[in-house]
């Protein structure tokens, strides 16, 4: 379970998150929507430990552990995964090698044995196949020369291989064609289970058709201004955020 209370964070001296209260019980998928610049990506970065952001107050625990006190790699080992809104390129670093190193680092942290290249490739090929991705995705350098959509698919592939307990997807559906959209939804749905939670940041109702969330939250000006069921997303699709924000202000 992810439990966020009164979380405030800033960049430099500019406050971005102004008191977030949010609980995602184990086994649930929650969607986060909200206007551009409202702090959605910031929330994802703060939860995963990006250094540019300063937490100024509040708390965030995952399965009881204070994740804000951990290094980013410790959070990853605890099961936190962030699918980046803009995935990063790593020139010369082979995707398979990158993922194997990551997976083995996490396995080591859990006291599990490392996978050798052969074992890893077997696992990775099974996932690429299940997600209907070409095998050469594994051979290419991480995100280098990938199209926008390919980068997003690569994030989903990484998630499928690393099998997180808390997945934060930051607009992973943006820029995807309709088939790829299903792939993202399938990627999350495949991980769904009693120990898995997800925060899905999106601007589009479309994704939520394939990936029915337990709750939908609206983030505006660094606060959650409204929470509802899946029908809230449909309502927003029609009426936009303006009314909501005015109401909250």
């Amino acid at each position: 379970m992810l439990d966020i209370r009164g979380l405030t964070a800033s960049i430099g001296d500019k406050p971005i998150l102004k008191g977030i209260d949010l609980t995602v019980p184990a086994g649930e998928v929650h969607a986060i929507m909200g206007p551009n610049g409202s702090g959605k990506s910031t929330l994802g970065y703060v939860l995963s430990g990006r250094e540019d952001y300063t937490v100024t107050g509040g708390s965030a625990t995952f399965n009881g552990a204070d994740i804000l006190a951990m290094e980013p790699e410790q959070r990853a080992a605890a099961g936190v995964f962030l699918a980046f809104q803009a995935p990063i390129e790593l020139p010369g670093v082979n995707n398979a090698n990158f993922l194997r190193t990551a997976l083995n680092a996490i396995r080591r942290a859990h006291g599990e044995s490392e996978l050798d290249a052969v074992q890893f490739l077997k696992l990775a090929r099974a996932e690429t196949k299940r997600l209907a991705m070409p095998d050469d995705m594994l051979k290419r350098n991480v995100n280098v020369g990938f199209s926008g959509g390919e980068k997003k698919r690569n994030e989903v592939l990484q998630m499928a291989i690393l099998r997180p307990k808390l997945a934060i997807l930051d607009e992973t559906d943006s820029g995807l064609d309709i088939d790829a959209l299903k792939i993202v939804a399938d990627g999350v749905n495949a991980l769904r289970g009693p120990e898995f939670s997800a925060l899905v940041i999106t601007h589009h109702q479309r994704l939520l058709d394939h990936l029915v969330p337990n709750r939908v939250h609206v983030l505006a000006h660094g606060r959650i201004v409204r929470t509802g069921g899946p029908e809230l997303a449909k309502e927003l699709e029609k009426s936009g955020y303006a009314g909501l924000i005015a109401e909250a202000a």
Partner: peptide, 12 residues
């Protein structure tokens, strides 16, 4: 920095 963070987010 964002390359390092990306890697660390994945567990490295």
């Amino acid at each position: 920095d964002d390359q390092l963070f990306y890697c660390r987010q994945r567990g490295l």
